[in-house]
């Protein structure tokens, strides 16, 4: 994923940032914009492309908690703007 992804989002491809997902919604994790160490860390926590993710809790302007593969993972604010998700049907 790179800078081009934001353009694609504008095209309405149902892609958005995790920061735009409401509490309770279920989406598919797609990837992370820049940062390979970070990406591998997320992979190790079970966040692989296509995996369903549910937003459980969100501190306004702060981090959020997601449910993924039967665990709960807290993700910091700085990360939410870089994680790309797709609507799950």
């Amino acid at each position: 994923m790179n800078g081009a992804s934001s353009n694609r989002m504008e095209e309405g491809r149902r892609l958005r940032h995790l920061s735009d997902v409401r509490v309770g919604e279920i989406v598919r994790f797609m990837g992370v914009e820049h940062g390979c160490a970070l990406r591998m860390r997320l992979v190790a926590m079970g966040l692989t492309p296509g995996v369903p993710v549910r937003v459980m809790q969100r501190v306004p302007g702060g981090p959020c908690i997601v449910a993924v593969r039967g665990t709960r993972v807290a993700l910091g604010r700085g990360m939410l703007d870089r994680i790309i998700v797709e609507n799950a049907e």
Partner: peptide
């Protein structure tokens, strides 16, 4: 820059 938070919340 500050490293982002990633932490598991165990049951």
């Amino acid at each position: 820059e500050n490293e982002p938070l990633v932490i598991e919340l165990p049951p």
